Simulated assay, not measured.
Amino acid sequence: MMTARAAMADESIDIAELIRQIRQGQPAAAEQLFRFYEPEIRAEIRYRLRSSAVRRVVDSQDICQSVMISFFLRVGAGQYEIAEPQELLQLLLKIARNKTNDAYRAQLADKRDVRRVQSLDAAKEVGQRPGPENVPAEAAEMTDLLEELERQLSTQEFEIATLRRQGFQWDEIGEQLGESPEALRKRFHRAIERIGRNLTPWF
């Protein structure tokens, strides 16, 4: 299986094209991107979960799934501009770090004693784990989530999302809509964040 680091050394991998296909709602592109980057994301999460006490309450596979759902929804809605494999890898690793920290802080906020909680990995049956073989189904599910997210956008927000999927930059969108590009970008991103959090706890 080709990983992200192998992809970065392979000039035939066109990240910008994969992003374009994801924005068009093509699950195969999401599956391909997931397979490239999943090993690096999992490695980063495992590094952050060095403490055995933390690993008892924070599941690395769940966090990895959270990272990819969050990324696919945002990129599908036109929130990110990414053209290089290294840039994408760094973004995904940053999301992974934030998700891992958030998951552990949530456990602490619940005042749970991490030394006494049964390991989540041990508590789940192997057949229930969302491993790489389930990536196509997960990619299709993310497409459904993106469609629902877009249904909840306002008329102007949906127009912005459509223009972003078509490759328009923020200055071009601002000119078309007669507003400040920065104001449109911030308003659009706030809408995506709000709706995304309502749709899924993974956002």
Results as ranks from 00 to 15, higher is better:
1 M>G: 15
4 A>E: 10
13 I>G: 01
19 I>S: 00
20 R>P: 04
21 Q>R: 15
23 R>C: 07
25 G>L: 03
25 G>I: 02
25 G>P: 04
33 L>Q: 07
34 F>T: 11
39 P>W: 09
40 E>V: 10
41 I>L: 10
42 R>Y: 04
48 R>Y: 09
49 L>N: 05
49 L>Q: 01
53 A>P: 03
54 V>P: 05
56 R>Q: 15
56 R>T: 01
62 D>K: 13
64 C>I: 05
66 S>I: 01
67 V>D: 02
69 I>R: 15
69 I>V: 12
75 V>F: 03
76 G>F: 03
79 Q>S: 13
79 Q>T: 10
81 E>R: 11
82 I>R: 01
83 A>Q: 14
89 L>P: 02
91 L>V: 05
95 I>M: 06
96 A>S: 02
100 T>I: 01
102 D>I: 06
103 A>V: 08
104 Y>S: 05
109 A>P: 00
110 D>N: 10
114 V>K: 09
114 V>I: 15
114 V>M: 12
115 R>M: 09
116 R>L: 12
118 Q>D: 09
123 A>F: 12
125 E>T: 14
132 P>I: 11
133 E>K: 09
133 E>Q: 12
139 A>H: 00
142 M>A: 07
142 M>P: 00
143 T>Y: 04
143 T>K: 14
145 L>A: 09
146 L>H: 04
147 E>M: 13
150 E>F: 03
151 R>W: 01
152 Q>A: 05
159 E>M: 04
160 I>G: 00
161 A>V: 02
162 T>C: 05
164 R>M: 07
173 I>V: 06
174 G>M: 05
174 G>L: 03
174 G>F: 10
177 L>Q: 08
183 A>C: 03
183 A>Y: 03
184 L>E: 02
192 I>S: 06
194 R>N: 07
199 L>R: 08
201 P>R: 05
